[in-house]
Amino acid sequence: MSQYRLEIRVKPRPGLLDPQGKAIHHSLNSLGWDGVGDVRVGKVMYIDIEADSETSAGEAAEAMCRKLLANPVTEDFEISMIEALEGAGS
């Protein structure tokens, strides 16, 4: 088993109103960034996990997203990084 660090990004689905993003958009505009278009706010989660291989760490990440980390009605997810942690595991 080895230690892996997962980076998971969860973001609002395209087309859905993201009120947080909208508020930030207004704020950026009022600060003078007139060229700012769409702003959307998501989450990044870092999860350390023990797994046999990078593939199985990725599969676990996918299952976590489907079961808990993202709501399929309103959010999309992406496993943006699977990093083997140095010096950990056996």
Partner: peptide, 17 residues
């Protein structure tokens, strides 16, 4: 109930924030 799938859909942040 929505998160559990007993009702469809989801409740998002109020549009007024």
């Amino acid at each position: 109930l929505c998160e559990a799938g007993l009702l469809p859909g989801a409740l998002m942040r109020n549009s007024s924030l």
